[in-house]
Amino acid sequence: MARARPFSAARLPGFAAMAAATFLILYAPIATLVIYSFNGSDSVAVWGGFSLKWYGAAWENAQVQEATMRSVVIALAASGIATVTATMAALGTTRRGRFPGQTLIYAIINQPLMAPEIVTAVALLIFFSSIKVATGYTGLGYLILAHAAFCVPFAYLPIRARLESMDLTLETAAADLYATPWLAFRRVTLPLLAPGIAAGAMLAFVISLDDVIITEFVKSAGQDTLPTYMLGQIRRAATPEVNAISTALLAVTVALLTLFFAVTRKRA
């Protein structure tokens, strides 16, 4: 008797049309944005011929340069803090047997992923506002800590996944060879964990670089990042310069995410 073919959603009637419509809905607006970033007209919606002038305008815009540098500084610092914190949390929750409250700890670490971002933003606003009033400090430290708090679960997930794929007997074997806990971590655990740490750091960096909601709630006057600067421009008089900035930011994000998936695939 002929064996029945395994079920495949791709064989369902209308699957190809539905998939094509989904990709069109998802990517047509992005493609339009990229195309109109080369618009020679002063309008964001009226095509005026191919031109690179808006990329040049964005490159020479002092406000764009300042906002970009601020975004990079915040993203680097926040992703660094989040990655170190996530690594310690992942080590504490995976390199041992099961213990009471382990599921609750997982839920607490991943809480920013489950809660609406606006809720996290309001909570951070209230928390940091009270500190600002008490200390008088209004620097970038609040934005860095706010981004780091939100980015911890994004860094935690790939690091934890990497640790869970590593056999616990590796450290035990190192201890049998008279390695101290620190030496076993530095020579055995850390090198094997490095791809997961790199993936977590890149993902946290991208999330921080692109964030708008938390930044809008926590930032002080004169602390616009690149996404919030673009939001402000759209609220006033939008030009294709915003399209050019968005396309450049999209290119950076895609490049980092591609590198992230390359690292995680290599890890697997």
Results as ranks from 00 to 15, higher is better:
G49T: 06
A57C: 11
T83H: 12
W59S: 14
A86R: 01
L124P: 05
V84Q: 11
L125N: 05
M69I: 14
G56W: 06
Y106E: 14
T138P: 11
Y55L: 09
K53F: 08
E66G: 05
S79I: 06
P116K: 01
A115W: 14
P100A: 05
F127C: 06
G136Q: 02
Q63R: 13
V84P: 08
E66R: 15
P100T: 00
E66N: 11
G56V: 03
A78P: 10
E60V: 04
N110Y: 00
V72F: 02
G97E: 04
S79M: 04
P112G: 10
M114R: 13
L52F: 10
F127H: 07
P100R: 00
E66Q: 15
E60K: 15
A107Q: 00
S79R: 10
T83I: 09
L104H: 04
M88V: 14
V64K: 01
G80T: 15
K132G: 11
A75D: 03
F50V: 12
T83K: 00
M114H: 07
T103N: 13
Q65I: 11
V72K: 01
S129L: 06
T68Q: 07
L104N: 06
V64R: 01
T138Y: 09
G97S: 03
I81M: 13
V84Y: 06
L52I: 14
P112W: 01
S130I: 02
V133P: 01
I105K: 00
S51I: 12
A123D: 03
T83V: 09
V84G: 02
A90C: 03
P100V: 04
I74V: 14
T94L: 12
V64T: 06
T138N: 14
G49C: 09
T68A: 15
M114C: 07
A67C: 07
R98N: 14
E117V: 14
G49Q: 12
A78G: 03
A78Q: 07
V122Q: 10
T87H: 08
P112D: 12
Q65S: 12
A75T: 08
A58S: 13
A78E: 03
A78L: 13
V122L: 15
E66S: 15
T68C: 12
N61S: 15
V133K: 15
S129T: 10
N61C: 10
L76H: 08
G136C: 04
E117K: 05
G97H: 08
A89D: 04
S129C: 11
W59I: 13
L124S: 05
I126R: 11
A78V: 08
V84A: 14
V73K: 13
V64P: 11
M114Y: 05
I131T: 12
F128D: 01
Q102V: 09
L52T: 15
N61P: 08
A134M: 08
Q102T: 00
V119W: 05
A115H: 09
I109N: 00
T103E: 05
